[in-house]
């Protein structure tokens, strides 16, 4: 069954110089699989992710012919209904742990906050659940991390804490917005395999937003390639290397390869007819 269905999604910002469309008619369906959204900055991939949670503030506007999550109409949902969905059923992991964790609160307190407030758990129960969540994202010393402040953690640890926090309520859909671009390659691989495992074992849907095609190939089933707010190509991740669209090919070719040629890297052509 389709978990999330989006038809003709548009995000518009009204500016002094007239409306700017950040997302222009995006449609996709997602079941409990891994969907990747790739594109350069400004392509509208983050806005698409945020629009699903209706997390766009005025002057931004969200319009869609249809946006349903598990049978529920997201466009018609009230604020209270949306609050019940956010976090509990649809969770989002942001790009940079430095800016997304509260710098003056211990990690443990932040992890337990939701459990205490939302699920009305006792202190001990909340503590046990938080430690278990840290365990699930392979943090070796959960006791120490619970008592640490975010600045005492490395980027990779902070990112894992955020993933743990998002996974505590057991969401059905996780939107991960560049969850690894602040991390080193070795840590990146680790964090991704944690996410991958969770999708498999919990049967969660995943929207993985990234500008790095190489990661998406490895960790997603299907890929949407976005440019200037539009989907220019949708394809199975394993076919990405044989992409038809010149923009997708351009994104792939501009990456340096180990042992590749020393010729200048091909620049991306953003001027062709499809770019309009």
């Amino acid at each position: 069954m389709t978990l999330l269905s989006v038809r003709n999604l548009r995000v518009t910002f009204d500016t002094e110089t007239g409306p700017v469309q950040a997302v222009r008619g995006v449609s996709f369906d997602l079941d409990r699989k891994r969907l990747g959204i790739v594109g350069e900055s400004g392509s509208g991939k983050t806005m698409t992710g945020r629009a699903v949670l209706r997390l766009i503030r005025p002057p931004g506007r969200i319009e869609a012919d249809q946006m349903t999550f598990d049978g529920q109409d997201l466009m018609a949902a009230s604020d209270a209904q949306l609050r019940a969905l956010r976090g509990r059923r649809i969770a989002m992991v942001m790009q940079d742990p430095k800016y997304s964790l509260n710098p003056v609160m211990k990690v443990g307190a932040q992890l337990m906050e939701g459990l205490r407030q939302r699920d009305r758990l006792s202190r001990t129960e909340a503590h046990a659940k938080a430690v278990a969540a840290l365990d699930a994202v392979q943090i070796r010393d959960p006791g120490r991390v619970m008592e640490a402040y975010p600045h005492e953690l490395s980027g990779g640890m902070g990112q894992r804490v955020m993933i743990a926090m998002m996974l505590i309520p057991g969401p059905d859909l996780l939107i991960a917005d560049e969850p690894t671009s602040a991390l080193d390659v070795t840590v990146q691989a680790e964090v991704l395999s944690i996410l991958d495992n969770l999708v498999k074992t919990r049967g969660m849907g995943l929207i993985f937003i990234s500008h790095d095609l190489r990661l998406v190939v490895r960790f997603c089933d299907r890929v949407l390639v976005m440019f200037k707010g539009k989907i220019v190509e949708e394809l199975a991740a394993r076919d990405l290397l044989h992409a038809k669209h010149p923009y997708t090919q351009g994104l792939l070719n501009c990456l340096p390869r180990i042992g590749g040629s020393r010729e200048p890297l091909p620049a991306l052509d953003r001027s062709a007819a499809w770019a309009r």
């Binding site: 350069e40 500008h211 790095d212 501009c254 340096p256 200048p264 890297l265």
Partner: peptide, 11 residues
């Protein structure tokens, strides 16, 4: 930087 901008900067 983005991959495409990275390519331009490296060049």
């Amino acid at each position: 930087l983005d991959a495409s901008v990275q390519a331009e900067t490296l060049n």
